[in-house]
Computed example of a mutant assay.
Amino acid sequence: MSFASGILALVTLQRLGELVLSRRNTERLLARGAVEVGANHYPFIVLVHAGWLTALWIWGRDQDVNLAALAGFLLLQGLRIWILVALGPRWTTRIVVLPGAPPVASGPYRYLPHPNYAVVVGEIALLPLTLHLPRLALMFTLLNLAVLAVRIRIENRALSVSDWPRTSTP
């Protein structure tokens, strides 16, 4: 197995683990009376992320690794963990709001309204650059920005409802 394949395997396992965690957290939130908002856009987010990983496996699995870009990607993983810890059981890949719960204002949410989206934008660009695939970085960054523009608009509208906190990240 090449170094690039090892990196892709770890990222793939991370994303699968996040989907399991997201499903569990979503089910628990819904059981507590939470509501999912904007579910119609979710398949497009899944498509972009699945396409990104698939393209990386197809064209990047045997590439040399740019260590500087990899260091940036690893730094983003630290930020991702900080976000997961800050949101705890309220983290999900969907937009799920729990009426009456106070907004999360700790961790990176003290500084940015949507820190996970900033991390995801960086990841979508940096991992292909780590594998010397600048065209994939550009293509998926643009696709991701398009779906995030829709998602952030929906999430901001949902969060503007009185007493509805941040409860989601992709």
Rank of each mutant, 00 (worst) to 15 (best):
Val119Lys: 01
Arg23Cys: 01
Ala69Gln: 09
Arg32Gln: 12
Val97Lys: 10
Thr167Leu: 14
Leu16Met: 09
Ala69Arg: 06
Pro134Arg: 03
Leu29Lys: 10
Trp82His: 07
Thr141Asp: 02
Pro102Val: 01
Val161Thr: 08
Ala69Trp: 02
Leu112Gly: 00
Ala137Phe: 12
Leu74Cys: 09
Leu131Glu: 12
Pro43Val: 12
Val46Gln: 15
Ala68Tyr: 06
Trp164Phe: 10
Gln63Cys: 15
Ile45Asn: 14
Val85Cys: 03
Arg157Ala: 13
Val46Ala: 08
Pro128Val: 01
Ala4Val: 05
Leu10Glu: 07
Pro170Asp: 04
Gly17Val: 10
Leu75Arg: 04
Ser2His: 10
Ile83Gly: 03
Ala39Asn: 09
Gly60Ile: 01
Ala55Pro: 05
Pro108Met: 05
Glu27Lys: 12
Pro99Trp: 14
Thr169Phe: 00
Ala69Gly: 04
Tyr42Pro: 13
Pro89Gly: 00
Leu131Gly: 14
Glu36Pro: 14
Leu53Glu: 00
Glu27Tyr: 02
Leu129Pro: 13
Thr167Trp: 03
Arg28Trp: 09
Phe140Trp: 13
His114Leu: 11
Val11Lys: 02
Val150Lys: 11
Arg24Cys: 06
Val96Ile: 06
Phe140Asn: 08
Ala50Thr: 10
Gln77Leu: 06
Leu127Pro: 11
Val97Ala: 15
Leu13Asn: 09
Leu127Ser: 13
Ala158Asp: 04
Thr169Gln: 08
Ala105Lys: 03
Trp57Phe: 04
Arg24Val: 15
Leu56Lys: 00
Leu138Pro: 13
Ile124Asn: 00
Trp57Val: 02
Leu47His: 03
Gln63Tyr: 03
Phe73Thr: 14
Ala34Tyr: 09
Leu79Lys: 00
Asn40Arg: 15
Leu19Trp: 14
Thr169Ala: 10
Leu133His: 05
Ile45Gly: 11
Ala146Cys: 15
Val147Leu: 15
Phe3Ala: 09
Arg90Gln: 06
Pro99Ser: 09
Gly88Asn: 08
Arg15Gln: 09
Thr169Gly: 12
Ile45Pro: 04
Ala149Gly: 15
Arg32Gly: 06
Ile81Glu: 07
Ser5Asp: 04
Gly38Met: 04
Gly72Cys: 13
Pro103Trp: 00
Arg135Asp: 10
Thr167Phe: 01
Ser5Leu: 12
Ala68Arg: 11
Val37Met: 14
Ile7Gly: 09
Ile95Trp: 01
Trp164Gln: 09
Leu142Arg: 03
Leu53Gln: 05
Ala158Glu: 08
